[in-house]
């Protein structure tokens, strides 16, 4: 539990030519296998922090390391996202024209895997989230909870050391939401990936190893 997977040192990010400071000199460390929750009101900098930790953006200043790799330019981001990070979005963001299995295979496509290997791995992951029997179903025919389970399987496709979940239960009823969270924790324990959860729901933060509360671009 003491291997650092994410390091931010004095990360600052501004928008609109410096008029809006979304992230203000933020430093933090996240350990492998830990559960980290990020909360805060709208406009507090949660999304910007998530984008930087998720290698979707780079800070204007400061240093970011993900699994030991420095994130210094936009050119590094694609590879870091593909290899180190699994995303779970509020709206699941599955590709509607594809089946559940094909959606899980999407992150594996840039990797040198045969179609058979991709298929086997995707089926294995769908088995983990108890959806193997729906592998060849169009995601349009799945319920909200099932879709989010497919999204979890997809996030695990490349065995990333870091899982980022942005309001993963925001569109689900409370029971289904708890099931999804239970499944996320189960996979976190199984894979030893760190789980960063961004949420407004304090209940979901219970048991967090680290709780980050954002306020005006800073960690409160």
């Amino acid at each position: 539990m003491n291997e650092t997977i994410v390091t931010l040192r004095s990360a600052t990010k501004t928008f609109e030519g410096g008029l809006v400071t979304a992230l203000d000199d933020v430093s933090l460390e996240i350990e492998r296998g830990s559960f980290v929750s990020i909360t805060g009101p709208s406009g507090s900098g949660k999304t910007t922090l998530l984008n930087i930790v998720g290698a979707m953006d780079v800070p204007d200043s400061g240093e970011v390391l993900i699994d030991g790799s420095p994130v210094e330019s936009s050119a590094d981001l694609d590879a870091i996202r593909a290899e180190k990070i699994g995303f779970i979005f509020q709206m699941h963001n599955l590709i509607p024209v594809l089946t559940a299995r094909q959606n899980v295979e999407i992150p594996m496509l840039p990797r040198p895997l045969s179609s058979g290997e991709r298929r086997e791995r995707a089926l294995g992951l769908l088995d983990e989230v108890k959806l193997r029997d729906r592998a060849d179903s169009s995601v349009r025919g799945l319920s909200g909870g099932e879709r989010q389970r497919v999204a979890i399987a997809r996030a695990l496709a490349n065995s990333p050391p870091l899982l980022l979940a942005d309001e993963p239960t925001g569109n689900l009823d409370s029971n289904t939401g708890l099931e999804i969270m239970e499944m996320l924790h189960e996979q976190r324990r199984r894979t030893s990936a760190a789980l960063i959860l961004v949420t407004h729901n304090e209940v979901l933060c219970e048991g967090a190893d680290q709780h980050i509360r954002m306020q005006d671009g800073r960690i409160a």
Binding site: D78, F87, F89, I95
Partner: peptide, 16 residues
């Protein structure tokens, strides 16, 4: 657009 954004978030490069 959203779908392409998801692919990019999942590690697909702009070239892909």
């Amino acid at each position: 657009t959203r779908e392409i954004g998801t692919l990019r978030a999942l590690g697909w490069s702009g070239r892909r």
